[in-house]
Design a protein around this nucleic acid. Structure first.
Length: 283
DNA sequence: CCAGCAGCCTGTGCGC
DNA sequence: TGCGCACAGGCTGCTG
């Protein structure tokens, strides 16, 4: 499930391949996944691709932007004829040769025979076309908290934690407090910093706060470095899988030995989400 | 105001 | 083998 590192990896791919392309036409197979002024993108050129939290913003040269959230199973894929072979070589989970397929809900036809398409098995994601100057006031983008690796300072982090007695893991995943962290990186960051996921956020000592922020930055950077986690259906803009799943410390490792002390990793449900931790290392 | 949870979906993996 | 069902998940919107 794409979180900050996965969405950042998609962004990097789109920034590299999409910028400069002109959108010629759109095909909409599942109307509920696309909203806004869809006609506005026709004839416009892609200028830059940005990311805020887990959201993507593809800015066009006519004052409009394509905003998107891929939720769990969404994929934004770029394809052009001469790239097909190269893409398959990149250990793609999805064979790009058979795409677009029945899960492809929106297709943007670009110049030079390239396409950008949105594929989403569970149909939870969305694409919204809005004026660029209104992106920041859109419901999803409006309520995003500060970005780790970009503008989240230790002082801010401390204030966020001190105010609340919510279990620390739930707090980390609250997008309005800190943007971009999901279940995978929340679990792993807490393991790295040896903090129990159920600890009230305001109970952390200053040292624990520092360790946690450092761990968050560490796991997110590692995630980006290895192209994200492809535990489910995540692939980047060229259909390539990431490798972070090989670095999971505790996420989905229940009943397996803790990589640090050998104790059995436990699983509980916290805020309705699977929560994995080592009962011995994490206090 | 905040916490908790249903709903949105469908492929996967389990038990029988 | 095949069926049925719980489960996974981010976010919105509703309820208590």
């Amino acid at each position: 499930m794409p979180e900050l590192p996965e969405v950042e990896t998609i962004r990097i791919g789109l920034q590299k391949y999409l910028v400069g392309h002109i959108i010629k036409d759109i095909t909409i197979n599942l109307p509920k996944q696309l909203s806004g002024d869809t006609k506005a993108v026709i004839g416009a050129r892609v200028v830059v691709v940005k990311r805020f939290g887990k959201g993507l913003v593809i800015e066009l040269d006519n004052g409009y932007s394509i905003t998107a959230h891929v939720k769990m199973t969404g994929q934004l894929l770029y394809k052009e004829p001469y790239l097909s072979k190269q893409v398959i070589a990149g250990n793609a989970k999805v064979s790009m040769t058979s795409l677009p397929d029945k899960y492809t809900h929106v297709i943007f036809y670009l110049d030079k025979g390239a396409i950008l398409f949105y594929r989403d098995v569970r149909q939870f994601g969305w694409i919204k076309i809005v004026r660029s100057d209104l992106v920041a006031s859109q419901p999803y983008f409006k309520k995003l908290g500060p970005e780790p690796l970009r503008d989240l300072t230790f002082e801010q982090f401390q204030v966020i934690l001190q105010k609340r007695k919510t279990p620390i893991k739930q707090l980390l995943m609250d997008q309005s407090l800190i943007a971009g962290i999901g279940n995978i990186y929340a679990n792993d960051a807490l393991f790295v910093s040896r903090i129990h996921p159920q600890r009230p956020a305001n109970s952390l000592s200053e040292e624990e706060q520092k360790n946690l922020l450092h761990a968050i930055e560490q796991v997110l950077k590692k995630g980006i470095e290895v192209g994200g986690a492809s535990e489910w259906s995540y692939v980047d803009a060229l259909g390539k899988s990431g490798r972070y799943q090989n670095y999971f410390q505790v996420y989905r490792k229940h009943s397996q030995p803790c990589p640090r002390c050998g104790s059995e990793i436990q699983v509980i449900r916290l805020g309705g989400r699977g929560t994995f931790f080592c009962p011995k290392c994490q206090k």
